[in-house]
């Protein structure tokens, strides 16, 4: 049984509505999740699904219309300033004051968090080293590369040694090298300080790096489990092959019995089948019968992205069904 001390972030039945042109729009519906201390939680979902909104409601940056939410035991509506003092946040369109240098930015956030002057020096030096920014202290933040800007944002969000950080798409638009470095930093934080991390990301591979993943779609959580657990939610096994005639092959394969779903991947087809050996043979036969050649037929492990697509597609079918 998890005691209250062990839970870093909690949300129960969160509801959020926005006033639209034709009346109120429900943007979040019945969001329930729990993040234990030291865990990394990934909130994954397509554009407009409600990732940022969820994060903002939990932090108290947006008013909630129903349900409960709290960070480190502090309620999002009532104890907003307690939350802000004990958590770090990187907004999606975060922008640190571009005219301030790296050092000035760090001092700025240190002052905002009330860190006394004598402790600031050591803390800032430590964070700069951690983020690899020690040589850039006098550069204006606006002139850092994209990856460095994100690292600076991370450093500033950690200045007050929070136990929880919430990151809204922190690596968007950043190249893979910097992304990996960023995630290595996060990994270090988790390993060395037991930091709890709540991250929204569109990158499925980052979802793999989380302990727990929540799939959010149209304002609802359609799945919440470990990455392995979510992948197990996908029914069937996954085959991959590259057909010569794409559209025709797709239609044929989709129509076969035992083929639960067909996804596309560039020039390849990904059919989900209930029985690997049997259906593989059947697919090969069906293709040959139509005179369609193919290459590279093999079984692969579904990754987070396939699981996501599978679940979302099923959800859509259920709604439109």
């Amino acid at each position: 049984m998890t005691t209250t001390n062990e839970i870093a972030i909690s949300a129960q039945g969160l509801v959020k509505r926005f006033k639209g042109r034709g009346g109120a729009v429900t943007v979040l519906e019945d969001i329930t999740l729990e993040v234990k201390r030291g865990e990394t939680f990934g909130l994954i979902g397509p554009d407009g699904a409600g990732k940022s909104t969820t994060t903002r409601v939990i932090l108290g940056l947006l008013r909630r219309d129903g349900g409960r939410s709290s960070v480190l035991g502090h309620d999002s509506m009532r104890d907003v300033y307690m939350i802000r003092a004990e958590s770090g946040y990187i907004a999606q369109q975060f922008a640190l004051p571009a005219d301030l240098t790296v050092m000035e930015n760090m001092r700025f956030f240190a002052d905002l968090h009330g860190i006394p002057a004598k402790r600031q020096k050591g803390r800032i030096a430590e964070l700069l080293k951690f983020a690899g920014l020690t040589e850039f202290t006098s550069r204006p933040a606006g002139r850092l590369s994209g990856g460095m800007k994100k690292k600076l944002a991370l450093a500033c969000s950690l200045i007050h040694e929070p136990q929880v950080v919430l990151l809204d798409e922190p690596t968007l638009g950043v190249d893979p090298v910097s992304r990996r470095e960023f995630w290595n930093l996060l990994g270090n934080l988790r390993a060395e300080r037991g930091l709890t991390i709540f991250v929204c990301t569109p990158y499925m591979d980052e979802a793999e790096r989380c302990n727990q993943v929540g799939l959010i779609y149209k304002g609802r959580l359609i799945a919440r489990d470990t990455p392995a657990g979510i992948k197990k939610m996908v029914p069937g096994r996954l085959l991959e092959f590259k057909p010569a005639q794409f559209e025709t092959a797709r239609k044929i394969v989709a129509g076969l019995t035992g083929v639960l779903q067909v996804q596309t991947y560039g020039a390849m087809l990904h059919p989900f089948v209930d029985d690997l050996e049997l259906r593989r043979k059947e697919i090969e036969q069906a293709l040959t019968a139509q005179g369609i050649t193919w290459s590279g037929m093999r079984a692969i492990q579904p990754r987070m992205e396939e699981a996501f697509i599978n679940l979302v597609t099923r959800q859509e079918e259920a709604e439109n069904g």
Binding site: L61, R84, Y89, Q92, Q93, A95, L96, H113
Partner: peptide, 13 residues
């Protein structure tokens, strides 16, 4: 507009 307001709001300021 720049989004810096949101970042500031999340601090104790």
């Amino acid at each position: 507009e720049a989004g810096t307001l949101e970042q500031l709001l999340a601090t104790p300021a």
